[in-house]
Amino acid sequence: MTDYLVLAAAAFLAGLIDAVVGGGGLIQIPALFSTLPSVVPATLLGTSKLAGIWGTGAAAINFARRITIRWSTAAPAAAAAFVLSFLGAYTVTKIPPDFIRKLLPFILVAVAIYTLKKKDLGTHHAPIHTGWQEKSLAVLIGGSIGFYDGFFGPGTGSFLVFLFVRVFGYNFLSAAAVSKIVNVACNLAALLWFGYSGHLLWKVGIMMAVLNVAGSLIGSRLALRHGSGFVRKIFLFVVSALILKTGYDAFLIR
């Protein structure tokens, strides 16, 4: 019973954080691994995806009701992410992601420093691309992050938010909204693979999904209420936590 309470709390907090800037896996995945140590990792990751996709989907719907989504960016990015996440998942079965594991903390440090230095980054929503240029960049970003999500994964939501702000000229709030749509595509592709291969704990995943949705709805409402400045602060907090976590995993765990 205690294990289920821990997983429920973790799912709620993960949904809340993930709805704003991504990074919910920092909470949800360690909770699953610590409370269910006898279950194989693939099944725990699949169960986390089962819970997470509902929360991410709820956040995407909540954002879409209040913010105008640029589907000319979101749709091609999501489609590319869906396809390439399969390729990433396949690749990780052939090539260990050790190089990415050690490189990731440094990439995140660069993202944090850039965001801190550019005080006005993401404060104004002024999309700078249209037409085929917009679609091509959306496919490139969606496909690249989709592949990364399938291949390794940590920080996917935060990378999407940063890239939509930096490359497309979105504010943090609009970037968070579009990133949720792309995240749903990534999670769906992974979930189909885990489901096909039988790596799902349905009862645990559904229980966590309910709490994940509850946290997600609160998180997206907080973002909508407090705007891009709030999202920027949470973004920097989550990126800082990711730097510590990925650095520890890459260099201190033997």
Rank of each mutant, 00 (worst) to 15 (best):
A75Q: 00
G23E: 05
T56W: 00
A89P: 01
R65E: 01
V40K: 11
S85K: 04
V109I: 15
Y114V: 13
G57M: 05
V21W: 03
I29N: 00
K102G: 10
Q28F: 00
F106W: 10
G55P: 08
A74C: 02
L87M: 13
I107Y: 01
A77G: 15
F82Q: 12
T73A: 10
L103H: 01
V40E: 15
W71R: 04
P97F: 07
W71A: 03
R70F: 12
G88L: 05
W71M: 01
I107Q: 01
I27K: 02
V109A: 11
A64V: 01
A60K: 06
R66V: 00
Y90L: 14
I107K: 01
A64W: 13
N62A: 14
R70C: 09
I95C: 08
G46M: 11
G24N: 02
V39W: 03
L44Q: 09
A31T: 12
L32T: 08
I53H: 08
T93N: 14
L44W: 09
I100Y: 10
F82D: 10
V111Y: 13
I61F: 11
Y90E: 14
V39R: 02
T35R: 13
K94D: 00
G23C: 08
A51H: 05
I107P: 01
G25K: 04
T68W: 00
F63C: 09
T73V: 13
G46H: 07
A51I: 01
L87E: 13
T91E: 07
L103Y: 04
P97G: 09
S85E: 04
V83M: 10
A77Q: 07
A112N: 04
K102D: 10
Y90K: 14
I27G: 02
V40R: 12
A59F: 12
G46W: 10
I113H: 03
V109K: 06
I27V: 14
V92R: 11
L44E: 08
F63H: 14
Y114E: 14
L45T: 04
L26C: 08
S48C: 02
K49P: 08
I53Y: 08
A89Y: 11
F86C: 09
N62H: 11
I27R: 02
L45V: 14
G88M: 02
L103S: 12
I29H: 00
T43E: 15
V83L: 15
A42C: 04
A64Q: 03
W71Q: 03
F33E: 02
S34V: 09
A89L: 14
W54S: 13
F33G: 03
P97H: 09
G57I: 07
T91N: 01
L36T: 06
W71N: 04
I100V: 15
T73Q: 12
L87D: 06
T56V: 15
G88S: 02
F82E: 05
S85I: 05
